[in-house]
């Protein structure tokens, strides 16, 4: 149970970063840390003690393998996480070009 708990603690660290940091890059880093904790948690739920990696030799089928389904889903999630991170960083570039700062307290003139 301890690894699950530590995964959740990592999630809470990311949440803390998103809620308290003022720098927009650190907010993005906090979001990514939350994503990473979820990936590790999902990969842990499919782990079987003593199982091999889910690559099967058809000639020699001895032994159990770990669950391939959570791994496939995490694979999808990792790629989508990169896409959203890149989109957030593009928004950060635009904000920096307009306001010359990464500090979200100074980006306070969002009106037409």
């Amino acid at each position: 149970m301890i690894p699950y708990m530590l995964c959740f603690v990592l999630f809470l660290v990311g949440l803390y970063g998103v809620l308290t940091r003022k720098n927009i890059l650190k907010i993005i880093i906090g979001l990514c840390v939350m994503e990473y904790s979820l990936y590790l948690f999902l990969a842990m739920t499919g782990y079987i003690e003593g199982g091999a990696a889910p690559i099967i030799d058809p000639a020699n089928r001895a032994g159990s393998v770990v669950d391939p389904l959570p791994q496939a889903i995490v694979l999808t999630a990792i790629v989508i996480g990169l896409a959203t991170t890149a989109l957030l960083l593009a928004i950060a570039i635009r904000l920096y070009k307009k306001y010359k700062t990464f500090d979200i307290d100074k980006i306070n003139t969002l009106k037409g």
Partner: peptide
């Protein structure tokens, strides 16, 4: 956790994310 595919993808994704962050 015996997930080599995830490890390969995560290396690539992490490197790209770090490069984009440094370029920002």
């Amino acid at each position: 956790l015996k997930a080599p595919d995830l490890a390969i993808v995560q290396i690539v994704v992490e490197t790209i994310a770090l490069i984009i962050m440094v370029s920002v």
